[in-house]
């Protein structure tokens, strides 16, 4: 157990705990706020795993933009502020499939990796990631920009409605 392991365990407990609250709570707005905690903890995990740039992009885009968009949607659909009773379907089938997927994957990965020790790679600074993006992954990067453009146009067309 090194210091990094302890940090990973602590942040992972926060992430999984708040993730559970996201899918279990009866308050729509609170689900969004728990999602902030969960995504923040995952950003902390990225930092411990030496992925600096991705951690800050996670904070900027997920915590900053995606959650704000989701909370906008909560407000625009006039969701009740208090607890709502009609958010869920029966939990049993979902619990069996979700729990099966989660525990199954966990057992599989734990069995595959046992308790091997892996050396940390170089920290993923903006310089390193930028080089990887623009030397090796240029084409996916450009395709992604076209995808963003089409998502933008699509969102505008869908929300304009038929007039």
């Amino acid at each position: 157990m090194t210091g990094a392991d302890v940090l990973l365990l602590a942040l992972g407990a926060v992430a999984v705990g708040s993730g559970a609250l996201v899918v279990l709570t009866d308050h729509l707005v609170r689900a969004g706020l728990y999602l902030v905690v969960c995504l923040g903890a995952v950003a902390g995990l990225y930092l411990v795993l030496a992925a600096e740039l991705v951690a800050w992009v996670q904070v900027l885009i997920y915590v900053g933009a995606v959650v704000v968009l989701l909370l906008f949607a909560v407000m625009l659909t006039r969701a009740p502020i208090g607890r709502s009773e009609d958010l869920n379907r029966p939990a049993w089938p979902a619990a069996i499939i979700g729990g099966g997927a989660g525990v199954g994957l966990a057992v599989l990965l734990a069995d595959a990796y046992r308790w091997v020790e892996v050396a940390q790679g170089p920290p993923g600074t903006a310089e390193l990631i930028g080089e990887a993006v623009f030397r090796t992954w240029v084409l996916p990067f450009e395709v992604l920009s076209i995808l963003l453009l089409s998502a933008l146009v699509g969102a505008i067309v869908v929300s304009r409605g038929q007039r």
Partner: peptide
């Protein structure tokens, strides 16, 4: 894996 299971759930 646990986060993914929670997401599926």
């Amino acid at each position: 894996a646990l986060l993914f299971g929670l997401g599926v759930f």
